[in-house]
Amino acid sequence: MKNIFYIILISIVASACTTVNPWERGILAKTEMAWEPDPLMGQLQEHVYFSKEGSNGGYGAGGGGCGCN
């Protein structure tokens, strides 16, 4: 489990942390590269997982309460 994660991480970092010039940011600015390409879907999913599983949180805070004790 954790090994897969490390392999992915190392192979990405190994492809070099290069300086990215402002004009090269076009790819990073694409919608599909966003942390959350569909915010509404993302909020719904987070709410479902947080209510129906034993964990919560991750990339931010907030999102309000829920009667899902």
């Binding site: 990405i12 492809s15 990215v20 940011r25 990073l28 931010g60 805070a61």
Partner: peptide, 26 residues
């Protein structure tokens, strides 16, 4: 009641790749 705090780093690795790591306490 809930109190939560988080902090993280976002790093552009190259023009194709971006990585974000976050730690949180709730």
């Amino acid at each position: 009641e809930n109190y939560a705090i988080f902090g993280g780093v976002t790093q552009v690795i190259n023009k194709h790749t971006i990585l974000q790591t976050t730690l949180g306490i709730s």
